[in-house]
Amino acid sequence: MSTAPAHEIGLAVHGLSKSFGGVHAVVDASVDFHHGRINALIGPNGSGKTTFFNCVTGMIRADAGTVTYRGQDITGKAPHRVAHAGIGRSFQVCRIFPRMTVLDNVLAGVRPTGLATLLGSGRRRSDVERARALLARVGIDHLERAEAGDISYGQQKLLELAGVLMTDPETIMLDEPAGGVNPALIDRISTLIVELNAEGRTFIVVEHNMELVMRLSDHVIVFDRGAPIAAGPPSTVQKDPAVLEAYLGV
């Protein structure tokens, strides 16, 4: 990972729009994300957070708008190119390779450096050691030989995170990391996020757990009906009338 100076703008999104038929999922959304921060993206169900993620990471093509990362235009780039640019992501409903072992799941994030490594062993010693270290870091190293589809949902979430970390991303986008996991695991995940952030990784986290958002983030962006309606430090956003209205309908 090459780290950029803190508080410079890393990911910059301008005028992003995406509709599905008549549903306007993301509407002219512009957001800048600073390096080194833990950004939280919050908003009611269906406000376009996941669609925003998908457009940024190239999983779906936006109708309009530009996405730049560290000054490099990544608009409409294929997902693997976005990953190579240094952005890793997780999915709202966690995605792992269920028929592979836990260890092989993490190894899937290894990027071959040339033809020799591409055709070389899929379990190169140095890669395996790094994968094991990541599994130990998220706390599931004892499961490395289990088939990923057999472990619990919470463990799969940790595995997904380890797989993303294997690609050594500078910016990590997490779609509801605490969704569907028990309180002990939420603590483990949030500790991990804080530690990884301290090492220089930027986070963009979609999350419904407000307690977690307030505790974790440096900066909160509130989405409503496909666009940001407020942004700022957690304490100010919490009191913003527009936010209260979007959330509570008051």
Partner: peptide
């Protein structure tokens, strides 16, 4: 047994996920 094969098998299981991990 190669890295290439590991990437192909990732495609077999979940192509979008594989691509999001940087596999072309």
């Amino acid at each position: 047994r190669s890295r290439f094969g590991a990437g192909l098998k990732a495609i077999r299981e979940d192509e979008d996920k594989a691509q999001s991990l940087g596999i072309p």
